[in-house]
Simulated assay, not measured.
Amino acid sequence: MPAYWIAHVTVTDPDRYRDYQSLAPAAFARFGARFLARGGAAETLEGPAHARHVVIEFPDLATARACHASPEYAAARAARAGAAEVQVVIVEGL
């Protein structure tokens, strides 16, 4: 059953965030991620507002977790540190 990363992001340093954007695709490609939503128009109806929202589909929960724990994504997260406010959840699909 598929699993999804749901990320809410507010970029605070666009120049440094580009480093994350250049590194993260390697992790997503390795784990067969498929982007369902990335940026675009959004409206916050409840809770804290973020500028950007991302939904990424993975084949299953184990793969979604493995991607987040991978060395490739660790490098991307390190590059992103201090460049954005980020909340990421992994949720199992139906």
Rank of each mutant, 00 (worst) to 15 (best):
A27G: 15
P59D: 04
I6F: 10
P48S: 14
E85R: 15
I56T: 13
A41F: 06
A51S: 15
L36Q: 03
T10K: 03
H8I: 00
E46S: 09
F28H: 07
V86W: 01
V89D: 11
V54L: 12
V11E: 09
D60E: 11
V91K: 09
A78C: 05
P59K: 08
Y4I: 00
V54S: 08
A3R: 04
V9S: 03
P71L: 01
G47Y: 14
T10W: 02
L36G: 03
P14L: 00
S70K: 11
A26S: 12
R52S: 15
F58W: 11
Q21G: 15
A51I: 00
G82V: 01
P2D: 12
Y17R: 03
A37Q: 10
A33G: 05
A62G: 10
V89M: 10
P71T: 10
E92A: 14
D15Q: 14
A66G: 11
Q21Y: 01
A41P: 09
A27L: 02
A29W: 00
T44N: 13
G40C: 07
A76E: 07
V88F: 08
E57D: 12
V55H: 02
A3Y: 04
V55I: 11
A41W: 09
P25T: 02
H50L: 01
A24R: 05
I56Y: 05
R65V: 04
A83Y: 04
A83Q: 06
V55M: 10
P2L: 05
A41C: 00
A75P: 02
V11Q: 03
A24S: 15
V88T: 11
